[in-house]
Nucleic acid binder design. Structure first.
Length: 602
RNA sequence: GGCCUGGUAGCUCAGUUGGAUAGAGCAACAGCCUUCUAAGCUGUGGGUCGAGGGUUCGAAUCCCCCCCAGGUCACCA
């Protein structure tokens, strides 16, 4: 990286010129602002106290030193206290030829055997996936790819919440009103069938509560006393007692849910390395809690309940075992965390979970530390914001959710309409067209969600969100398709070889000064590896999304203003083809990190 | 009420290890297709970066205080 070289040499300059040691890491080399000529900028104000000279004198001295020491520097200019450094054309040409067109440019090969665990998705089996899950799934999947690109060995986990009172509610409604309906007889997607009964439960339950309230019972109490709630709790007890009939129904309905989820995952294009079920892990936390109690890290109360006391850390007490000895959510997570640690010995465990659970994960870490687990430090909660609709929050009970499958259908339809209107698929086969509509529809959806900083809440307006112009997925896909088309044309006219078409590019360039447009693109391409790194450090696919938009936009400007195949000088044609190729490759890689396909034509 | 996030153009979002005149897209308006894909490009208008104070050569960015919005503080998950 040229920045670190510049920083190191600047430190050296200050040592030799002014006799003061400054760590190179503390020196900030910035990219020169777009409107100002130059490639990199050193702000000299911080050094004035050391140099005891004017900004101009200080910048001149440092600039001269750098230019002598670093052959890549062509010249420098000083504006106020800003030392603007110009890299030579040779530097940029060499970068394009040697690095940017390399197959592994920006990608780090897997470095070790110690995995990073990423848990994401983690659906409940009582209802189909909705928009909130989509954000979760896309973030988790993209993050996995980003960490892989940073050389990490990644293990993707999905912990399915397949037990508990909420599942019993669907089961109860199905038993009572289901008439043995199946996905086949109903013609419904299997997870939607389950969702139907969950909604039905809530509807009937509400009626019961209303009736009780009418009799003069307080709403809070009515909710606890309602016969349906009591019955659902009874089903849960039977389930925990391994009642055969209950388990059979539970199994049957859960399988429907899985079947539906698998279809949705496949369509979304995401996957997991391992699926864990809460029904298998939910008991595992109990033993650590008991051990913690014996060792005096946890406390029991007279009624037999067990608590972690976090009051000295500014938090409250946290229940870990109920008075009847059963475990709560936190207990399960303690157990699951230890199971995972023992199985994988990961360097980090990342949980992709919504920000409404910030407190939960804060407490989880603190309790694990209290229990003497040193690896608690390696737990990271990737806390993402909620997706809001124009009307406000989504509520699954009130049917105000945006269903994942419906949304993908809509995206597909809009993609198809728009694409047909533009006449883009006139010479496509039906199969090719279908693939393209999927790519565009999903590309728009995924990009729309991933370009926003994960931790922020975001607004999803169904009408405005399905846009294919401007800062959108299809815009970037289109840029890629444009370049590929250019390369195909170049191939037809024998200016891009068969071998190069396969991505194996190793072309010697004669030194030609890149123009302003070319240089602008080269500078953005040069930043690709650092963007990947930064996205990995901050766990933020949004960094990649915003980077690739900037790249695509810059390419379109270049494409508009500079001829490639119509250029007369063969050396320039060669340079521009190489630049276009490198851009397409980086676009493809970025989109791949986001889990988005790029078409060859559109 | 305590704790945690966030507040940037009409709308959706970038930019926050302190740097030069705060950027994109959408929406509005005006241009550019006999020339490599117009899902594109160019231009115009639009901002007290929630308010106020402080730190310094320099603050959207750091500190303090206040306002607003969301989340959370269950023997729910």
């Amino acid at each position: 990286m040229i920045e670190s070289l510049l920083a190191a040499k600047t430190a050296e300059a200050i040592r030799l010129l002014y006799g003061q040691e400054i760590p190179a890491e503390s020196i900030n080399i910035e990219k020169t602002r777009k409107e100002i000529p130059g490639d990199y900028t050193l702000v000299v104000f911080p050094f004035l106290k050391i140099s005891r000279k004017s900004p101009l004198e200080t910048a001149t001295a440092i600039g001269a030193f750098l230019k002598d020491e670093i052959p890549y520097i062509a010249k420098f200019e000083i504006i106020n206290g800003f030392l603007n450094i110009f890299l030579s054309d040779e530097f940029w040409i060499s970068f394009l030829q040697k690095e940017a067109t390399e197959a592994h440019f920006g990608m780090t090969a897997e470095k070790g055997e110690v995995p990073v665990l990423i848990e994401y998705s983690s659906p409940n089996t009582n209802k189909p996936l909705h928009l909130g899950h989509i954000r979760n799934n896309l973030l988790g999947f993209s993050l996995a790819r980003i960490l892989q690109a940073n050389g990490e060995k990644v293990f993707k986990l999905n912990l399915v919440n397949d037990r508990g009172i909420h599942i019993c509610k669907s089961m109860l409604a199905y038993e009572r009103w289901g008439l043995n309906e199946t996905p086949e007889t109903s013609g419904m997607k299997s997870d939607h069938l389950i969702g139907k009964y969950y909604v039905l439960f809530n509807k009937k339950f509400k009626e019961e509560v209303k009736a009780l309230v009418h009799q003069g019972i307080k709403e809070e109490d009515a909710e606890k006393q309602a016969p349906m709630m009591l019955e659902a709790q009874e089903i849960l007890r039977k389930w925990e007692d391994h009642d055969q009939e209950t388990h059979a129904l539970w199994q049957k309905m859960n399988n429907w849910a899985y079947e539906g989820f698998d279809q949705t995952y496949a369509r979304l294009g995401i996957s997991f390395d391992k699926i864990q079920h809460e029904s298998d892990t939910y008991l595992s936390g109990k033993s650590i809690v008991m051990k913690g109690l014996e060792e005096g890290h946890l406390q029991s109360k007279p009624d037999g309940s067990v608590w972690a006391d976090l009051r000295d850390e500014g938090l409250d007490e946290k229940l870990l075992l109920r008075s009847d000895g059963t475990s709560v959510y936190m207990t399960q997570d303690l157990g699951t965390a230890e199971l995972r640690f023992n199985e994988f010995h990961p360097s980090r465990m990342i949980y992709v979970v919504g920000n409404e659970q910030n407190y939960h994960f804060d407490v989880l870490k603190r309790i694990l530390k209290k229990l003497g687990k040193p690896w608690a430090e390696n737990i990271f909660h990737l806390s993402y914001g909620m997706v809001e609709l124009p009307e406000g929050k989504m509520k699954s009970r009130e049917g105000t959710v945006v269903d994942a499958d419906d949304l993908m259908d809509e995206m597909y339809q809009t993609a198809e309409e728009t694409t047909r209107e533009l006449g883009k698929v006139n010479d496509f086969t039906e199969e090719e067209a279908t693939t393209l509509f999927n790519q565009i529809g999903l590309g728009a959806l995924k990009y729309f969600i991933l370009r926003v900083d994960p931790r922020k809440n975001m607004l999803f307006d169904p009408k405005e969100s399905i846009d294919f112009n401007g800062n959108t997925g299809p815009f970037i896909q289109y840029t890629h398709a444009r370049i590929r088309s250019l390369l195909r044309k170049a191939h037809e006219s024998n200016r891009w070889t068969e071998q190069e078409m396969t991505g194996d590019v190793n072309r010697e360039l004669s030194f030609i000064a890149p123009g302003a447009q070319e240089k602008q693109l080269l500078k953005i391409l040069y930043r690709f590896p650092e963007s990947v790194k930064e996205a990995g450090i901050t766990y933020s696919p949004a960094i990649i999304a915003n980077y690739v938009y900037e790249l695509a936009k810059s390419f379109n400007q270049f494409y508009q203003e500079v001829p490639v195949l119509k250029e007369e000088k063969p050396e320039l044609v060669s340079l521009r083809l190489l630049l276009s190729f490198a851009t397409a490759e980086v676009i493809r890689k970025c989109m791949n990190l986001l889990g988005i396909d790029v078409p060859e034509r559109m």
